[in-house]
Nucleic acid binder design. Sequence first.
RNA 1: AAAGUAGACAAGGCGGUCGUCGGUUCUCACUAUUCUUGAGAAUAGUAAGGAACGGGAGGAAAGUCCGAGCUCCAUAGGACGCGGUGCUCCGUAACGCGGAGUCCCGGCAACGGGAAGGAAAGUGCAACAGAAAAUAUACCGUCCCGGUUAUUUUAUGGGAUAAGGGUGAAAUGGCGGGGUCGUUUCCCUGUUGAAGACAUACAGGAACAGGCAUAGACUUAAUGUAAGAGCCCACCGCUCCGGUGGCGACAUCGGAGGCAUGGCAAACCCCACCGGGAGAAAGGCUAAAUAGGGAGGGAUGAAGUGGUCCGCUUCGUUAAUACCUCUGGGUAAGCCGUUUGAUCUCGCUGGCAACAACGAGACUAGAUAAAUGAUCGCCCAUGACAGAACUCGGCUUAUUGUCUGCUUAAAAA
RNA 2: GGCCCCAUCGUCUAGCCUGGUCUAGGACAACAGAUUUUCGAUCUGUGAACUGGGGUUCAAAUCCCCAUGGGGUCA
Length: 123
Amino acid sequence: MNFRFTKAEHLTLKKEFEKVFHEGKTFKDAKIVLYVTGNGLQYCRLGLVVSKKVGNAVRRNRAKRLLREVYRLNKHVLRPHVDIIAIPRHPFASDLKLADVEHGFRKLLLQINTAFAHDVFHQ
RNA sequence: AAAGUAGACAAGGCGGUCGUCGGUUCUCACUAUUCUUGAGAAUAGUAAGGAACGGGAGGAAAGUCCGAGCUCCAUAGGACGCGGUGCUCCGUAACGCGGAGUCCCGGCAACGGGAAGGAAAGUGCAACAGAAAAUAUACCGUCCCGGUUAUUUUAUGGGAUAAGGGUGAAAUGGCGGGGUCGUUUCCCUGUUGAAGACAUACAGGAACAGGCAUAGACUUAAUGUAAGAGCCCACCGCUCCGGUGGCGACAUCGGAGGCAUGGCAAACCCCACCGGGAGAAAGGCUAAAUAGGGAGGGAUGAAGUGGUCCGCUUCGUUAAUACCUCUGGGUAAGCCGUUUGAUCUCGCUGGCAACAACGAGACUAGAUAAAUGAUCGCCCAUGACAGAACUCGGCUUAUUGUCUGCUUAAAAA
RNA sequence: GGCCCCAUCGUCUAGCCUGGUCUAGGACAACAGAUUUUCGAUCUGUGAACUGGGGUUCAAAUCCCCAUGGGGUCA
């Protein structure tokens, strides 16, 4: 199983971010919000947006690292090829462990699978 | 021991697994060139990928408060304006920083703090209270005189006086001593000084009323009136002069002056020194994109230039389908800048020190939607504040722990 | 990342440049009372603030320094 997370799997351009925000569907739980849209590529991509309300630079870095790690370890669950933007919600405690985030994130990924089942059929 | 004070150091460690960003080497793929009959080999380059090796946040990376490098605009030039700094000497590329000192303030002390030039160039300000707030002032008080009255006192008129009073943040140097060892009356004797009148001090004798000092400002002489309290002495401050020590800030000693020059300059200001502007989203190159759209301009021109003027540079020269500027729209991707530098470590020399010179060695993050993470085990015992974004030197702020030096008056034990 | 600005009652603001009875003024809102059968409107009254620390000064909301919080801007 591939646990790598290469450069190509990052969302980078401003255009791509705007497209996901505009056209994407949202999936939420208490800690995270995901914007998701199909991308027409052979793989999935992840972008991160962290508000200043989350905390200082150290806390924001910590939040990004946790989300990146969670995605890396669980992206094999995803079957459709989509672009995802993950946004940690405001009270995102800095002492969260990976396992605390992972459970909710997995659930959201399964929701995405059902929502985009049509696309998978086409691929 | 406790309290205080100054400084130094560290910033969890080791191992396993999965991952991330640069670097070096190898590999794979492709392209070009050369060799070769061909297969193939060698060299060079490159998008994405793989493997190995080695590296990957801080003492504050923070705030952006100062100072510089670097880039563009003149090689950053002149005048005015504006802003900053402000004890002395030294250090530094530079600084508003640092070191060593001076003076003042705080503290028992160790030690800490100080934007610490000029108020006898000018302008301005000081609420309330107070007689008066800056050319000092006469409210109370004190003294003298006039006048009234038989006389005295009070009241009243004139003059003198800053020793005393109350107000205030501040009242025109400060604080003491003597003259005068509580006051008054009166006389005698002796000594002392003196030309004398007489005065003072001391000693002895006589009388009086008041008081127990947190008191007391007047005294002396006199017919008239006049004199002194700044009269004498000492100390501190101040001003001036001179000597000595120190590169200097300043210190110290001596003399003269009776005190002139109150405070605020983080009020304007004056003096001295410093400062051109913009900032890596600087700036350069390549690619991509669009309608050459609208408005304006012309040698007394436009722009660069963001304080103003001069100067400088670039463009442009007789007339518009060109050029320049502004505005609107469009593109918004990549590379360089970008990590070797006033660098770091060690040694030695000079210097009280900050620091500098010399020698040897080291290469120590370089991302760009943005890299250090996750998880497991063990140990110390539970790890605070906190994340590089062109680069340095400082300052300031946040904050955990360990160690070392120094100080401790009074009170208590 | 750079550059710049702001902070006064619950809200919007005046005062700051030129320091003093500032015990900080005004409007809206709040509360209480009056009026009204009641509400509203009106009238009267009350409470409520200088972002924090340090400095200069006799005296600081005001002048200076440091911090905290908030906001704007750029290619």
